[in-house]
Amino acid sequence: MTGTEIGLRTLTYRDAVREAIREALQKDERDFLMGEDVGHYGGCFAVSKGLLEEFGPERIRDTPLSESGFVGAGIGAALGGMRPIVEVMTVNFSMLAADQIINNASVYLYMSGGQFNVPLVIRMATGGGRQLAAQHSRCLEGWYAHIPGIKILSPATIEDARGMLWTALEDPDPVLIFENSGLYNMEGTLAADAGPVDIHRARVRRAGRDVSIITYSAGLFKSLEAAQILAAEGIEAEVIDLRTLRPLDEGTFLDSVARTHRALIVDEGWRSGGISAEIASRIMEGAFYELDAPVARLCSLEAPMPYAKHMETAVMPQADRIVDLARRMVGAHG
């Protein structure tokens, strides 16, 4: 630990998620973690390493390779009064649990006439950039955000990785937390007393007057990098971290666009029918008369994720392209 004298310490995003799980299990005996390899193996991304020893097999439960089965079990546990944290290894495998999530978890409150909430939290890794190719690099949180009845969280910062889980567990309805696997090794500082955070508001991570870059998850850091390059050229980009894709906090980005008059959406998901399309539409609906340039989007190319590193890099949004687009948008009107 460093910086203890000012109440800061250094840790990784992975550490922050583990701390959040530990805190939850310590605070509420109804909480437990289950998923493939979360116990003995310590989690596919080593997030739950050491927790089996600490909390025992009742509360850190290894499951069979059956996403539909164990997510369904999680729904049942939630209906039965527990507060389960279900880990689906990656979003790619969540397709096998899509029926449970979309057809069951999201609608039980409605189907039961308001009798049964499903206080379930599902965590999963998402995103590309790690050379895992087409089947293991999907970025589908924007797609889940299409579904009413569930909340979609996208923690980018270590503070959010640490703080969103508890707030999600307190929510009476299903919450999906998408952790970008490229962020697990990211190091950062956290206040010694860091704890739960709100999950309803987007945040301005960098203030600027010339263009609003609206992004989330790993896109945040590419956007901040781009903003720094742009600042050296005199272009002040405002960077907004959406944090939650459903419900979308449009107030924050509409206010920002009203100040900068230009919006660039950076989304690792695909463009057609994606969350970027939703954000662009909200801007048209809510801030049309503020726009000084067409809304621009930088998304992943609409192709299966290539394995080769240089092609993968080319497919995904990168800082240089963000710089390029922002420059063009701002340059057009000085």
């Binding site: 008059h261 049309f288 008369y289 503020e290 726009l291 000084d292 340039a293 057009a332 009107h333 000085g334």
Partner: peptide
């Protein structure tokens, strides 16, 4: 742009006299 039109209306600027430098 919509913002330019709004500004022009507020300030009484005739857009036909404005030279556009955008795309």
């Amino acid at each position: 742009s919509p913002y330019a039109r709004r500004l022009a209306a507020e300030r009484g600027v005739d857009l036909r006299r404005v030279e556009g430098t955008g795309p």
